[in-house]
């Protein structure tokens, strides 16, 4: 499971969010990421390091390249965020059902 604090900081940067959106389309090398983002290779590499540290992407070695892709856990994590928020809301609205059951029609 990715480190949540690290994931928050990683997601706070618009370039890193854009990189994640690009990786959602499929694996990419650093060079393939440099082009659309108009950033230097060291700048892209720094962003990738943050994303990797946060557990949001994984990289593999292919010769001299290190292509990166979204970590499955990042996708699962986002699903889990939704599930937990859903549970908190369900608890509230179940309570609201009980409140509504005791309310008298307004005069």
């Amino acid at each position: 499971m990715p480190n949540l604090d690290a994931a928050f900081s990683a997601l706070a940067d618009p370039t890193r969010r854009a990189i994640l959106a690009r990786l959602a389309l499929g694996e990419a090398t650093v060079m393939e990421l440099v082009e659309p983002f108009d950033l230097t290779q060291p700048a892209i590499s720094r962003h990738l390091k943050v994303l990797e540290g946060a557990g949001l992407i994984v990289r593999r070695v292919e010769g001299t390249k290190r292509p990166c892709r979204l970590a499955p856990s990042a996708v699962a994590e986002i699903d889990q965020w939704l599930a937990m928020l859903r549970r908190a809301l369900e608890t509230n609205y179940d309570r609201l059902d009980s409140v509504l059951a005791t309310m008298k029609p307004e005069q």
């Binding site: 949540l4 994931a7 928050f8 997601l11 706070a12 940067d13 618009p14 969010r17 986002i78 889990q80 965020w81 939704l82 599930a83 937990m84 928020l85 549970r87 908190a88 809301l89």
Partner: peptide
Amino acid sequence: DAGTRATMLASGMEHGM
């Protein structure tokens, strides 16, 4: 923005934990 939404959804998770 998208990052704020992601953080909010994540805090929903924390709140439930």
